[in-house]
Design a protein around this nucleic acid. Structure first.
Length: 551
RNA sequence: GGUCCGUUCGUCUAGGGGUUAGGACACGUCCCUUUCACGGAUGAAACACGGGUUCGAUUCCCGUACGGACUACCA
């Protein structure tokens, strides 16, 4: 079938010709008849560089599932030295949300998925914003009417709603279009008259019944649809804008897209898309399809939605999004303290596997390892615990200096004043204990400001009046103890301990509480060293005062 | 309802006609550590069901069940 030939034929068509010739004479591109085997993996050696696109709709924040789609497109392009394009699908004027486009671009940049072409990135195949291509779609839509693959329809949305109300399972298709108000029933002349008179109309795809439409999906294999089951999809809306179906085919063709990698939700309408390629005479250059499994809710029922973030207490967006209302505002992975490398790694493995046991992948490693064959078929639950694990891994693996640089903004936001040297030491102390960036200034706040409170249980359990002399002596010794380093400090404390007949279990917990207020945290003497002599003494004195007051 | 897609430990998944069904997250236990974490070891934990095909099916085929997506002048 022609589909299998898609990428082969595609590259031999001069699309520069396509673009220019279309303006002179309508549409139909000369076909090539290059025929080769259908490559199983969607790519073969003779093939020119793939061109893929990420085509989000600017209706709000970019969902994490969309980001994964972008990732897979990006990886596929990079792996094969191809081109990754960002196209903004803003054909629904009613759903346009200001700021969404910027958000999408920022999210892509944050995760390192920088497009080669697209809105905000330049390129020779623009414009890349569909609202800027309105005229193009109109011409193609009308041409499709001319060639008999589409028709004008005058039924209003209200009229169709009424049909749906009164007739069970009503659809606009080959069984119902004869009873509706369109150019097939009214005749060309009458229809043209209504169009010319400025009457609102849409253009619908004319789906002929009685044939099978075969799709060779790169992930799912062969999928077959019966054309009689398909409805006459609207291609051009009454406002003159195209629907997704028309716009994506026209643009993918004009932009020389070779592989359409998109969410599974598009699989059912792919049959229509194939029909459109046929209608335009572009079958030989039709891109190959790969329909990605969906990302599901943590509980399993249904695909992950934007509300699930609040519901399950986790981010489902890359960046914070400030909507009109709190309900419409969402936390991002970035703001939750995730490293973009970790988010990318996590997302890559949500629906794709490398074929071995490797879990940690840099972007470069992903580019190398990624293949469409290794994308799974079934939906994957969104596992926030796993996301945190990846983040922890990346925090641990990061060079402490580099990590400190990422923590610095959080420290500054808290109003803490530190120097680079101290920050790095403090970060180093907490590095193995952090899963997200805010842990450094929240769990580890005591490295930047005095202890706020002492764990009452621990104090009560470990403190007794006999400890006071020990603490007093320790404070005294500390004043001129040299060198103020982990091991010497430890030796010194042990010595005093022994002199007083105390055991580590009596002493260490108290020192810990005195220094950080809690029983958890980095090693006591390491903490003392980072805090420094003065602060250590200060905290011991404060604590001693606190327990004395308690008595 | 219709169309299409899917189904291996709780989760992400590897595997694939004959395996002790492997790894990772999470969980349990132990070690390291007088804390927490990291790290190490270890344990529990899965082929949805029913028919075929076959000497043999978790693997191939067909059903069923269950799950999901789509079914707009939204993408």
């Amino acid at each position: 079938m022609a589909r299998c030939l898609a990428n082969n034929g595609h590259f031999f068509v001069s699309d520069a010709t396509t673009l220019t010739s279309y303006h002179k004479t309508p549409i139909f591109v000369p076909q090539t008849n290059a025929k080769t085997e259908c490559p199983a993996n969607g790519i073969d050696n003779n093939m020119m560089k793939p061109r893929v696109r990420f085509a989000p709709s600017p209706t709000g924040a970019l969902h994490i599932g969309g980001l994964r789609t972008a990732l897979y497109n990006y990886l596929f392009a990079r792996k094969h030295g191809g081109t990754f394009i960002l196209r903004i699908e803003d054909t629904d004027q009613g759903r346009y949300v200001p700021g969404a486009e910027d958000y999408i671009i920022e999210a892509l940049k944050w995760t390192g998925l920088v497009p080669d072409e697209g809105v905000g990135f330049g390129g020779q195949n623009g414009p890349y914003r569909q609202s800027d291509r309105k005229d193009t779609y109109q011409q193609y839509a009308h041409a499709l009417v001319q060639s008999g693959h589409a028709y004008y329809a005058f039924d209003t949305p209200e009229a169709l709603d009424a049909q749906r109300q009164s007739i069970d399972n009503f659809t606009y298709n080959h069984t119902t279009r004869d009873g509706l108000s369109n150019s097939l029933t009214l005749g060309d002349a009458a229809s043209q008259q209504r169009v010319d008179a400025g009457e609102p109309f849409v253009i619908r795809l004319k789906v002929l019944p009685g044939r099978e439409i075969h799709i060779q999906d790169l992930i799912r294999g062969s999928v077959v649809f019966q054309s009689s089951e398909l409805d006459d999809k609207v291609l051009l809306k009454a406002d003159g804008m195209p629907t997704y179906h028309l716009a994506n085919i026209v643009d993918d063709h004009l932009m020389n897209i070779t592989h359409v990698i998109r969410g599974e939700e598009w699989l059912p309408s792919t049959a229509h898309h194939v029909l459109l390629y046929e209608g335009f005479g572009w079958s030989d250059t039709m891109p190959q399809f790969a329909h990605l499994p969906l990302i599901m809710k943590p509980v399993g029922n249904g695909k992950l939605s934007k509300r699930d973030g609040a519901k399950f207490g986790m981010p489902v967006f890359p960046l914070n999004w400030k909507g009109e209302t709190d309900e419409d505002s969402f936390e991002g992975f970035r703001e939750a303290g995730f490293l973009p490398e970790a988010v990318v790694n996590f997302l890559a493995l949500l629906g794709w596997h490398p074929g071995n046991d490797q879990e940690i992948f840099s972007m470069e490693a992903l580019m190398e390892a990624f293949t469409i064959e290794n994308i799974g078929k079934s939906g994957a639950r969104f596992d926030f615990e796993k996301a945190k694990w990846f983040n922890q891994k990346y925090i641990q693996a990061l060079d402490t200096e580099a990590l400190a640089a990422r923590v610095r903004p959080l420290v500054a936001a808290k109003g803490y004043r530190t120097n680079a040297e101290y920050l790095e030491k403090a970060v180093g102390l907490m590095q193995e204990r952090a899963t997200v960036l805010p842990d450094f200034v929240e769990t580890g706040y005591y490295l930047f400001e005095p202890v706020k409170s002492y764990e009452a249980d621990a104090v009560q359990k470990k403190w007794n009046a006999a400890m006071a002399p020990f603490m007093a002596e320790l404070i005294q010794v500390l004043h001129d103890f040299e060198p103020f380093l982990t091991l010497p400090l430890e030796e010194m404390v042990k010595k005093i301990m022994q002199e007083k007949g105390l055991k580590p279990g009596d002493v260490m917990p108290l020192l810990r509480i005195a220094l950080v207020g809690t029983m958890k945290g980095p090693a006591v003497f390491d903490t003392a060293v980072v805090l420094g002599r003065d602060e250590t003494i200060q905290r011991l004195q404060t604590f001693l005062q606190y327990v004395v007051d308690l008595q």
